[in-house]
Design a protein around this nucleic acid. Structure first.
Lengths: 130, 130
DNA sequence: TTTTAATTTAATGAG
DNA sequence: CTCATTAAATTAAT
């Protein structure tokens, strides 16, 4: 029980999340290539990307089961399997019964400001619409 | 010890937070009138407003100590003490050394979407700036 | 102010 | 991979 409990809990910034969500809405099951691109883009480890997508698929987010075709289309377009053969994680095991379609339509904002030292969020300036 | 442990943990929506933050930035020590206005505006109990401002003053949020004058000005303009005399919480106890000035410049977004049943967030559509 | 409780989200582990 | 849980981080309430 004295095992060190857990890796530093990654806190994605708003920008990172935007990128992740965009990628997720386009393809909830990213292939190796896409994941590597994200790794470079948001500067994190692939394992974090992996975990984030996994959690993302589970219970969060909106699944509009409106147009199954689009979803299946995204699945078919999985990734170009060119340079991916070091871990058969991609097109090998895929859920078969999913006929859902993701549609990111909204987001909840967390309007706190803290540019505190403990958080490294990238401070987005809000247009004075308040 | 068998007392019911806590009131339902209020979760302010984004819109409510916007209003609260605006009010907070204008006046971190709101008077009775302002608090009542907020009660009506965001439809909650005055005790929640009270607690929120208290927590707000404690450790959250950004205090830019740039222009103390503005902050002091806001303090002077406390509230019109017309109808406020039922709980001496307002202009009575005030910190004296606060020369800070609040400036809401940024906010961290929580870009998750879940229109799940457990959450009642007000789903704000994001302009496709991604 | 300090501490506690409720939520949210990232990380793990079983299947 | 999915599903269920655990742990960490936030935030409201005391």
């Amino acid at each position: 029980m004295a095992t060190n409990h857990r890796q530093n809990c990654t806190k994605f910034t708003e920008d990172q999340l935007k990128i992740l969500i965009k990628a997720f809405s386009q393809k909830p099951y990213p292939g190796y290539t896409i994941k590597q691109k994200l790794v470079l883009e948001i500067t994190t480890e692939e394992s974090r990307i992996y975990v984030w997508f996994q959690n993302g698929r589970v219970s969060h987010r909106v699944w509009k089961s409106s147009e199954p075709e689009e979803y299946l289309e995204a699945r078919r377009d999985q990734d170009h399997p060119e340079e991916r053969n070091q871990s058969g994680e991609d097109a090998s095991v895929m859920p078969t019964s999913s006929r859902s379609h993701i549609l990111i339509t909204a987001r909840r904002k967390n309007p706190y400001t803290d540019i505190d030292s403990r958080i490294k969020s990238p401070n987005l300036v809000l247009k004075s619409k308040i």
